[in-house]
Design a protein around this nucleic acid. Structure first.
Lengths: 300, 300
DNA sequence: ATTAACCTATACATTTATGCATGGATAAAG
DNA sequence: CTTTATCCATGCATAAATGTATAGGTTAAT
């Protein structure tokens, strides 16, 4: 009795988790026909029907759901193995992936990545710009830059410094609407929104700004686009101070609203911290982020 | 960052557990060069050294030992998945592997296998003759015939009946040495041994026979060979009664020594018992083993 | 209806991995 | 010391996997 093909099991796992062969193929770096054949093969091999081909997407059968549990267990073990292996790797060459908010990734990281490349040419840094919090347990990134303390025992988190953010608008905007200084001034002025679900609005309320949806002249979930709209004079927007200072044509408004303080954390997995190359990048990022932007006096 | 190949992880696991590429290749149904390349590939991929090529066999490094733990976890999950899949399979065709002592496999099983083939042609029975107790958890067999109660919660064990064994010798032997009837008579007579470690000797002591190593005229670990030596007149040997009755040219000796009673258990995994084809074989084996040998009045 | 955007399954060419044969090296047995 | 039996690594021909291109089907929106 020959054993099952473990790659086919992985194909089943990804297909079940993503819900489609195409998505699984993208995630595994393979093609959809390959996944189609691998899943068909594992079904023939095991003599069970894992998915119901309902035309649209493939839906798990009861048997598939039962087996998925075990496949997930395999996947978790494989992830842990990969993590431990990377941690053991003492080579100072290879890829290190860094996850950060798109704001940080766009404005802060490039300079640091350039410095890393200069000092350690063997290391290639992969920048993952996402506002979603990457799951370091599942190895979606090697290192993450976050603004909340993850506080999990299997993660190493280092507090770099506190950063501050204020409200800004373009010079054009100020010429048109004047220069509001207090929270009360803001009630009837246009802002640039971040999401239409009201999360950003709640965030502004929390900082003393009594706004309504009507205040938003436009929306941009992506913070780079968001900042671009602010620069184009479409409304007031919040921005990290050191980035705003680097941007020509914007001025601080709502000066009486106290700056928002938020921490910068550098996070990695305990396993990965034993890896030479990841430790190198971790330390260089820590140093570089602590410095703040060039031209900015001090960050903390 | 593309993921690691799960088949290569399996190659690493088997190589580490068996201790050599060749043994792993045999177990996986592959060849040694393939395993050699797969292990080399996973080492390159992970950037670590898993084995120290010490010329003879490959010995795990500290890193390898660390990663082996995770690989074992994957293997356990894969086994559980395979088990659950077989249990879910409702097809009455496929392979069912049955593990039994070589004695049972040689003398009792063939007739039953023949009957199964006649009644359910879609099922192929794989007979695994081993005196080692197969690990049903690790799926070394689907069904095992044992003579001890495994008594584990995840195994299903059905007591078929009690069987008995007595001491026998060939007619030639009796003509030469006479017909011993009591345990005391046996003290100076030749026996056929089973192992040179003294286990079989201790077993005989336990049943009242005060023998020494000098009593053994020859040894055979394999019980079929053992029985063959007895039939050739080389000494006294114990044998299951119903098999002895089928063997021409042997007679019971040491008649005053009470027969050894031992149970026949049929064991399978709870997961597998939900499989149609395994249940079919299980039930037919249970029925067939309960009947005893044809020509033998009753077994229990 | 009809279009567009998904998805999956199959045919064919190509890349990739596997098996076979061989050589070298080591350890145990004669 | 020689022999024998294993075991691992590598070259080469073959078999097996994968990718590309394509057809067919379903859903949702125009």
């Amino acid at each position: 009795m020959d054993k099952v093909d473990w790659n086919q099991l992985r194909a089943f796992l990804e297909t079940a988790e993503t819900g489609s062969l195409s998505a699984a193929a993208r995630k595994l770096g393979l093609t959809q026909p390959t996944l189609s054949r691998q899943v068909a093969a594992i079904e023939r091999r095991l003599g069970v029907t894992l998915f119901e081909r309902a035309g649209k997407s493939m839906v798990l059968t009861a048997t598939g759901l039962d087996l998925l549990e075990h496949a997930r267990s395999m996947g978790a073990a494989a992830d842990a193995l990969g993590m431990a292996a990377t941690g053991r790797s003492q080579a100072v060459e290879g890829i290190v992936s860094v996850s950060a908010s798109d704001m940080v990734a766009t404005h802060l990281l490039p300079r640091l990545v350039r410095r890393i490349r200069q000092e350690v040419p063997g290391i290639a840094v992969e920048v993952i710009a996402t506002n979603a919090i990457s799951d370091l347990q599942r190895r979606e990134a090697d290192i993450a830059i976050r603004h909340v303390n993850p506080d999990r025992p299997d993660l190493i988190a280092r507090l770099i410094r506190q950063a501050s953010a204020c409200f800004y608008a373009s010079k054009d905007w100020v010429e048109t609407y004047g220069h509001p200084r207090t929270a009360d001034d803001a009630g009837s002025l246009p802002f640039v929104g971040a999401d239409r679900a009201g999360r950003y609005l709640a965030y502004l309320h929390h900082h003393g700004l009594s706004l309504k949806e009507a205040n938003f002249s436009c929306y941009a979930e992506d913070s780079v686009a968001h900042w671009g709209l602010v620069c184009q004079g479409l409304g007031i927007g919040a921005m990290m101070d050191e980035i705003a200072h680097e941007t020509p044509g914007v001025v601080r408004v709502l000066d009486d609203v106290p700056p928002v303080q938020f921490p910068i954390w550098l996070v990695t997995h305990t396993e990965l911290h034993t890896s030479r190359r990841i430790r190198v990048v971790f330390d260089m990022l820590a140093q570089g982020l602590a410095e703040g932007m060039p031209g900015n006096a001090r960050g903390d």
